[in-house]
Write a protein that binds this DNA or RNA. Sequence first.
DNA 1: CGCTTCCGTCAAGCGGCTTGACCATTCGAC
DNA 2: GTCGAATGGTCAAGCCGCTTGACGGAAGCG
Lengths: 148, 148
Amino acid sequence: MSDDDGLGLAALLLSAAGSLVDRIDEGVARRGYGGLRPAHGFAFVRLSRGGASVTELAEHLGVTKQAAGQLVDELERKGYVRRGPHPADARARLVVLTDAGRACTRAAEEAAAEAAAEWAGVLGERRLAELRRSLGEVAPPGPIRPTW
Amino acid sequence: MSDDDGLGLAALLLSAAGSLVDRIDEGVARRGYGGLRPAHGFAFVRLSRGGASVTELAEHLGVTKQAAGQLVDELERKGYVRRGPHPADARARLVVLTDAGRACTRAAEEAAAEAAAEWAGVLGERRLAELRRSLGEVAPPGPIRPTW
DNA sequence: CGCTTCCGTCAAGCGGCTTGACCATTCGAC
DNA sequence: GTCGAATGGTCAAGCCGCTTGACGGAAGCG
């Protein structure tokens, strides 16, 4: 009954997303990168494209720049990122991944691929691709925000 | 590039889930039930099946019973639920929806159906059903937890 | 009966986030 | 050029939802 209404769809989506995120997070920890939360992984995704300013990161994550700043502090303390001067804007500082940060990003990608492979085992490649396609059509662009 | 790996899939899922949840929440508010958060909606879903104890609710939501108790406090203060004696266990108290609570539950279902209809408009009924089916196969049973 | 288990609540504290204020730098109109 | 407005980053304070810990009361079971 709750599986063919909108609320059931939301529950399904939340459950699937939560499960996938948890598996990735756990896979990252299993690879030796403990003390990281899912939000860090999405920060890595953004930073791996040549770095970003704190403000850009904040927009990417859908939080205030103060919150993004704290997150960067934490990653810097753990040695995953480094704040450097911004080449084109003296107000800004460019946050870039360190070698450890890049290694951790790879670990996250591996863990994610592993989780996706499990799903492919259940659904088959074809239906997984279709799932991805459908989600792409309904998912809005914009920041990756924690769900509720 | 980020759309065909596991991390991209997670982002898509999170984005879609977040969007749907936001729309439902907003739809509920638009119908006159302000000050409610998505978690309340999922609590309503559980309570609408004849009520539940605080502990059952906690399990359903994947939080501690203390947290569930606070949530019930809040809903009680706003007049959506009532704590009554439990018919079979004097330790427990049965949390049931009031008339306002049932009306609000209906509003949430309407808002969810509305959002789902929008998705059906994009994907078509057939692909939406397929989406739901695939999600049902990969989503674990268990509590509805906030994602990351 | 008495021991263990379970329900609900009180109390304290934490973690991640927000709003508000501020300085330094840059941009744009004049 | 110069000056005001906009923007990047940070400090500070506080909030809110949640957690851990501890406890009384009731149930279950030998």
